[in-house]
């Protein structure tokens, strides 16, 4: 397969990811909701350790792209290769096993369960013991549960949330709920992490901390991260490549510098709304 042939046209891949099979290769992706074309001819390639941004005005179709990538909605058109394998016809849980994990714009935690249990559910497939092992409390149960407990606390400590392990997830402050969603997604050991507006509702200092942590996650786990965000400081600060979506179509792709200066992007953002906040 001539992997390199299509790369330059689609990819925003940083140097370190060149020559490597991209984690995500999206071609001509599209979906119609009845008469409405929510996403159309979406082409994007994401490198294995890239931090990519997906931006665009409200209703542009960003969340819909995430839902297509995780097969919450089946695409009407196009194809997705995750780590070189087609995602067509796969169930959402299978895609997670194949290496894609996500957070949600409107937080979806297991609210009545504890913080630790939330993370342990993310670790579900990392554990292998059977129902019989758990009823009889065989060694496999104890060993893997102990591991999961330690792993959960370790993951929580990325965001300094170790001490909150026994809190109910629903009682966490808003920012911590967003961080817990990231930890839970990370627990599933993905190759690519999709973050849907991770900084929404956070104050500037929380956002700055989040930026550091997103970079830290990429560096420690060596995974790709694709994020949707309206906070331009965050996007321009940490994304290595950015795609701009408007009315379901990509109108620009490039580095933060290129995107900032792109007249089409400026038009889409400022032209209609007349002075949107940066």
């Amino acid at each position: 397969m001539d992997k390199m042939a299509w790369m330059p046209s689609n990819a925003l891949i940083p140097e370190r990811d060149l020559q490597k099979l991209p984690i995500l290769d999206i071609r001509h992706l599209g979906i119609d909701f009845g008469g409405l074309t929510a996403v159309d001819d979406f082409n994007l390639t994401i490198g294995r350790t890239e931090i990519a941004g997906l931006i665009g005005p409200n209703g542009a179709g960003k969340t819909t792209v995430f839902n297509l990538l995780t097969n919450v909605y089946a695409p009407t058109r196009g194809s997705i290769l995750l780590d070189g394998r087609s995602t067509a016809g796969k169930k959402t849980y299978q895609l997670n096993k194949m290496g894609i994990a996500r957070t949600f714009q409107n937080i979806r935690l297991f609210k009545a369960l504890t913080v630790e249990e939330n993370v342990q559910i993310g670790l579900h497939n990392a554990m292998r013991y059977s129902v019989g092992d758990s009823i009889l409390r065989l060694p496999a149960y104890w060993k893997q549960e102990k591991q999961a407990h330690e792993q959960a606390l370790e993951l929580l400590s990325i965001f300094d949330m170790r001490d909150m392990a026994s809190w109910k997830a629903g009682s966490l402050p808003y920012g911590a709920q967003r961080r817990l969603e990231i930890v839970r997604a990370l627990a599933t050991q993905p190759g690519i992490l999709l973050l849907d507006e991770p900084a929404a509702g956070m104050n500037p200092s929380e956002t700055a901390e989040l930026m550091d942590n997103i970079r830290k996650i990429r560096d420690t786990f060596q995974i790709a991260i694709m994020l949707i965000e309206h906070d331009m400081n965050l996007v321009m600060g940490i994304c290595e490549g950015i795609a701009v979506l408007n009315y379901g179509s990509i109108i620009a792709k490039g580095t933060p510098q290129e995107i900032k200066q792109n007249p089409v992007v400026i038009e889409a953002y400022l032209g209609k709304k007349g002075g949107a906040q940066a």
């Binding site: 995780t70 919450v72 169930k91 959402t92 849980y93 997670n96 096993k97 994990a101 996500r102 949600f104 979806r108 935690l109 297991f110 609210k111 009545a112 369960l113 249990e117 342990q120 559910i121 993310g122 670790l123 579900h124 497939n125 554990m127 013991y129 129902v131 092992d133 758990s134 149960y141 893997q144 549960e145 999961a148 839970r184 997604a185 627990a187 599933t188």
Partner: peptide
């Protein structure tokens, strides 16, 4: 009180989130 039980609880709590955590 096992991974299987937690999987059942996660479905009650939020089916979409459970599925995207890899729960069948």
């Amino acid at each position: 009180k096992s991974r299987h039980g937690r999987a059942i609880l996660s479905i009650r709590e939020n089916e979409i989130a459970a599925e995207s955590c890899g729960i069948h």
